[in-house]
Structure formats: structure tokens, C-alpha cells
Design a protein around this nucleic acid. Structure first.
Lengths: 344, 344
DNA sequence: TTGTAGGCGTTATCAA
DNA sequence: TTGATAACGCCTACAA
């Protein structure tokens, strides 16, 4: 099945002009007589002519499309970030092509390569938790493909980056739990390579330190698939409660980890005064039982900033050499899940 | 900034062959000597040649890409459906381009036109709640663009369609509320034009009828933006409780409407024995307070089926004339929110 | 077995 | 003011 469209050639033939005249008339070139312009435009309108963007892409070597690679769109943070990306891109005349890596390095690579060869004008990427080797990205970047990292960023490539203040978000959440009187705060987080993991772990550690609570490795668990695999989270939670130092509170880092962990805890029915706080952008945390204390990232704004920076790079005449790393503040939303019930 | 890539011409020049020889060698044509093939392939590998898909698209008038239009990806149903779409498309060698209509007819049209002109090979669409005029879609379809509707379908275009058994899902949920002893069951739903709205309303009505409860128009409210605008839902809920026949249970149709309504009810703190059940694909309904009874749609499978049918259409040699409408069963997951507390 | 030429839809350059 | 031609990258019918 094919799909027939009207081309400049059709118009030219029908009107007995050359294709170049038609082309110029359509783009309102000053060298074409009003008369001709009118005839062409009216006819084009009548037969519903649309320029073929594929041909334009080939000619201009640009597509006015931005490629996006995230781990999962079924993740509140990412779907909100994508809305931010779209809001800017749309206004600037760019289209957005979204692909998912499902936390797999291989899948991520396939997606990136596809974007590159399908000539998107630039790439927005949040690295998958499985990604270790960035050399292919580096290659593309050095060949001139504009790339902006958001959320899960990397030191290995020198370009614009936009992320939340993961350090501070984690610090505040941990400190809040400490103020509530919790002493053995476990930390459930994603794969250790990820920037967000490191930053959040750091915030957690420093909050403990500030309050003279010794950091205990045994209270930290990594879920390398970022909560995508429930068993992994369950395993982590179970092992925490089986270990010598049973936690009296849990601080989770990562949208999926947070909700999955909350669910597991609910099923486990631990003693009612377990403290809980986690990074998540869900809009329904207050509906939970108990209402959940969350660290909320400015996902929409992160998407917007990253897109602005990317379009700036794309449209820059000369190679960009000065880069910025934008760090946006998170918001700690206090609810019952992190409140200490019984005074000791 | 531009992004330089290797072309067949580069290889031809370097190896002193014609471009056609290189082209044929790369695709392993039988008419090329093993010798030449080897040289070309090795060199191509070495300099990391990738065919330019834009040029291929232009030439072949196909892109191996599928366009998807949904109202919102930050909606559990759609993000799950998209995962289903991707799972099939990916294996069949198609890429998936996702766009959002944000429940706006105009935005939907822009997206569809963009997909069409950017020559996707086919379109998967779930209509926006604001869409009334389908003539432009009809045009495209008649011009030969393969289209498959999913979720929010239409009678106006004769093609493949895939949707949940909205009628039965609504019937079962309503009947369940009736069995629990609720008598004045309100129905909060989306825009009246939508297929899913009509089907769910029908299921609701027939369940009432079966149990000899007269249908009362005053207990039905439409949120034309499908829950995207919280005020609209709040207004609807408030007016329900202000009216003469105050409901003793609410049955909601639509992912966003369900969670937003649940939240509003929680804030309103109505009497504790209000029954609640709703269509939603959230994975965290059991974490709610009270745990929420939901009608769950087989979103992933709907996405998969729709994609299979679309690819079938795309790859069919002759125009497809026999179409099917697949209706997949929903699942009613019973939890506390719909259980009657006090016997009367 | 390999090369030449033309075309997919568009625009830029040069010529008329 | 308009037209012919070439080019973007690739493929293929036809020629050699």
C-alpha cells in the first residue's frame, strides 16, 4: 500500500510553470510576480499541497526533530519531563521522537544509533542504569551531533547537562527522618554507576554525618534495574530486615523503586512506626496509606531547560565550547509516612 | 553545527569503484564478485558506514516508522499501551514515533499531519476527547495511509480497531457495587463523543437495569478533558453531592478521572461508606487508602494487537478490505474502596 | 562483473 | 521574472 501525495512537480505540470518557479512562489520569494504567486498559492491550497519533509531533510541535512532516550515512559518523572521537552520543542518548531531504553545498555545504543542515522538534529538523553560504556555516544558527539544530558548525566562527555539537586534532595529527606527520631535509616537506590545514585547517596551520607550517625554500608541496597524488576526490590527489602541492623526507616531513591518498595512494605506489614520517604514524581502519593513523604523533582522544568539548551546548540553557528550544568531544586513534601508515631 | 557522515560516494571514491558497485556490494548482490564485495564491506566496516535512512525514505517512500497519537503519555493506560506497541514494532523492524494530543483536536490534527507528511508507514491513534471532526483523518486514510484505531475508536472510518471491552468492564463494576448494596451509583466519565464513554455508560446503564434500578441522568457527569483539568472533576463531584439525589457510590471511567476524583473525595471526607470503583491502569491502586477497586484494561495487549494489525496493513500487497474490531476483556480487581462497610 | 544515468522532492545557482 | 540544471544519498534499469 502506498500513499500518494501532491508534489511541486504536480503543481508545475498543472499550471505550466517550472518546478523552480513553483518552489519560489510557495516560499513567497520576492523575485516572483504577485500574479504568479497568487495562482500557485491558490492551486496549492486547493489540492492541499504539503512539502515533503523527508526530501527537505535530505536536502538540508536537518530534520527539525529532536531525539529523546529515556529508560521508561511509564515512570512519572520521565513522562513529566517529556511534557516539558515537548512544550519547548513544539514552540520552536521541532518534533520530538521518544524512545525507551528499558534500562538496557544495548537497547539504549540501538535507539541512539537510530536517532543519529535518522538524522535528528540533536539528542536528549537520560542514561540507562545498565550503561557503562559511553564510547559510542562520545563518538557521535565528537562527530558533531549535539547532545544534552538530563537527569542521569555523566562526567565523561563535556556538554550541557540538566539535573535535579539530587544531593540536596536526599540530604533534606534524610535529615527530616533524623529529626523525626529515626536512627537506622536504610537507603534503597539504583545502580551504582548512575550519577543520580551517587549524588543521592552522598546527600544521605552527609546528613547522617552532620547528625553524628555513623554511616553503615549494611543499610544500603542497590537495585540495578531501578525498580523495573519487582523481585530485585523485594529481595533488597527482605535482606534489610533479615540483617543484624534492622532499619527503623527507609529512604528510597528512584520513582519505581519508591512505589514498589512501598508496596512490598505494605504486604510485609512491619511494625507501624517504620519511617518512609522516597524520590518519586507520582501525583498520587497523598492518596497512599499512609500518605507518602516524597522528594519531588522539577521534572517538567528539567525537560524544558534541557530542550532549550539543546536547541541553542543545534542552532548555534559556530561550535559551542562553553557548557553549563543546570541543577534544579527538588521539593520535599512531608506527609504521614515519615512521621514518628510513638515517642520512645 | 552539522554532523558529517560517510556516504556510498565516499567509499566509491576511496576504493575507485562506482557508487552502484558499492551499493550492490553492500547489499550483497549476487552480481558482484566476492573479491569486490570483501573489499567494500571491509572498508565500509572500517570507516563505520551507515546507510542514510532519510535518503532511503525518499527513495522508497517508506520509512519503517509507525506514528502514534495518544492524548497523554503521563497516563498509565497509554504508557502501558505504548510499551505493547513498541514490543511488536521493535521486533518487526519498525520505529515508533510518539506524539501527544493533550485532548485537543487541533493538536491532534497537527500531529497527524506531521506524521503523514513525514511519511510514517502507518498510524496508531487513540482519539482525543476534544475531537469531533474526523474528515482530515478520513482523507488521509482514503489516500492510502494505513490507520488502526485503538482504545478510543470511531465508527466513521472503516479499518481495524482494538479496544477493551468497555461495556462489560463497566457492567461488572456497576453490578459489583449493586451487589454490595449501593443504590445511588453516580457515574463520572469523559467527553460524550468518545467511544469509550458511550460504551461504559451503556454498561453502567444495563447493570442498573438488570437490577431494576432506574437510570437517573442526574447521577451522570461528563468531564470533557478526561481528568486533565482537576477543577473540572472537582466541579463535577461537588455538584453531585449538592444535588437532590446524593450518590452513595461513584463509578469513574478514565484513568485520570479516577485518580483525581479519588483525591477530591479524600479531601472532602464524605461519610466513610461511600463506594468507589473506577477504570484505571495504575499499578498502585492497592496502596491507596482505602485500597481502590479498579477496572483494569489490558493496555499492553491492546497496544500489541493494534500494532500487529497495522503492520499487516502496511505490508499487505493489495489494499486490505476486510477489517476486524478486536475487543479485549478488562479485569475487575476488587478491593476495599467498593465494599460496603455498614449493613443497613 | 561493473558503470552510467535517472529519479525520489526540494531548493540554490546560474542563465535567459 | 522565470527556467534549466545540479545536488542531497541511495537504488536500479539498462548498457557495456
Amino acid at each position: 500500500m502506498r500513499f500518494d501525495t501532491v508534489t511541486i512537480k504536480d503543481i508545475a505540470k498543472a499550471l505550466n510553470f517550472s518546478t523552480s518557479t513553483v518552489s519560489r512562489a510557495l516560499r513567497g520569494s520576492y523575485e516572483i510576480s504577485e500574479e504568479t504567486k497568487k495562482i500557485v498559492l491558490e492551486y496549492a491550497e486547493k489540492i492541499n499541497y504539503r512539502p515533503n519533509p523527508v526530501a527537505l531533510s535530505l536536502k538540508e541535512r536537518r530534520s527539525r526533530a529532536i531525539g529523546v532516550v529515556v529508560s521508561e515512559i511509564a515512570n512519572n518523572f520521565f513522562s513529566q519531563a517529556i511534557n516539558g521537552i515537548e512544550s519547548i520543542a513544539y514552540n520552536r518548531g521541532y518534533h520530538v521522537i521518544i524512545t525507551q531504553s528499558h534500562e538496557s545498555e544495548e537497547r539504549e545504543k540501538v535507539n541512539v544509533m537510530h536517532h543519529a542515522s535518522r538524522s535528528v538534529d540533536g539528542l536528549l538523553i537520560s542514561l540507562s542504569s545498565g550503561t557503562v560504556d559511553l564510547s559510542y555516544l562520545k563518538d557521535l558527539y565528537e562527530k558533531g551531533l549535539p547532545i544534552v544530558f538530563f537527569d542521569r548525566i555523566t562526567d565523561e562527555i563535556n556538554t550541557h547537562k540538566v539535573t535535579a539537586n539530587n544531593y540536596l534532595g536526599a540530604f533534606q529527606a534524610t535529615e527530616h527522618l533524623i529529626y523525626q527520631g529515626f536512627k537506622k535509616i536504610a537507603h534503597l537506590t539504583s545502580a551504582p554507576y548512575l550519577s543520580i545514585t551517587k549524588e543521592r547517596l552522598q546527600g544521605y551520607k552527609e546528613a547522617l554525618e552532620k547528625h553524628n550517625i555513623p554511616f553503615n554500608e549494611a543499610l544500603v541496597r542497590h537495585c540495578n534495574h531501578g525498580g523495573m524488576i519487582a523481585d530485585e526490590v523485594e529481595e533488597a527489602v527482605t535482606s534489610l530486615f533479615k540483617s543484624k541492623t534492622k532499619p527503623d526507616a527507609i529512604f528510597t531513591a528512584g520513582d519505581r523503586i519508591t512505589t514498589v518498595c512501598f508496596k512490598i512494605l505494605k504486604d510485609m506489614k512491619p511494625k507501624r512506626d517504620l519511617g518512609f520517604a522516597g524520590f518519586t514524581n507520582t501525583k498520587v502519593g497523598e492518596l497512599f496509606d499512609p500518605p507518602m513523604t516524597v522528594v519531588r523533582q522539577p521534572a517538567f522544568q528539567i525537560g524544558q531547560s534541557a530542550t532549550e539548551l539543546l536547541i541553542q546548540m543545534i542552532e548555534s553557528k559556530r561550535p559551542v565550547t562553553e557548557f553549563e550544568t543546570k541543577i534544579l531544586d527538588t521539593e520535599l513534601i512531608l506527609r504521614e509516612s515519615s512521621m514518628k508515631k510513638e515517642k520512645e
